[in-house]
């Protein structure tokens, strides 16, 4: 399953990239599962996306809970809590 993943702000800096196209193995069907898949890369990925860490996620440019489903062609983004305004 192919999809696009984006990283912003402190997450982007920690993992050292702002976007990537991923071809996920079968069985990864939620934002939480994708996060786990990326954590498994270890190093900066495990740290930036660690379970205890306060993260926000968006699926197709809408804020999404970690239980949100993901499917082929989606755009999924990981970022810290927002600080605009």
């Amino acid at each position: 399953m192919k999809l696009k993943v984006l990283y912003f702000a402190s997450i982007r800096e920690k993992v050292g990239r702002d976007a990537e196209e991923l071809d996920l193995p079968a069985g990864i069907a939620t934002v939480a599962a994708l996060r786990g898949h990326l954590q498994a890369r270890g190093g900066a990925w495990a740290e930036a996306l660690a379970d205890g860490k306060l993260l926000r996620t968006a699926v197709n440019q809408d804020m999404a809970k970690t239980s949100a489903p993901i499917k082929a062609g989606d755009e999924v983004a990981f970022f810290p809590p927002v600080t605009g305004g």
Binding site: F8, A9, M63, P80, P81, V82, G84, G85
Partner: peptide, 29 residues
């Protein structure tokens, strides 16, 4: 304005004497 603070995807990075630092989100927001 209140919703912008917590729902619009912006992130501030401030220049401090210790170097550039990402601003932490506030519980008050």
């Amino acid at each position: 304005m209140d919703y912008l603070k917590t729902q619009a995807p912006f992130w501030k990075k401030e220049q401090t004497p210790e170097g550039a630092q990402w601003v932490e989100a506030k519980a008050d927001d």
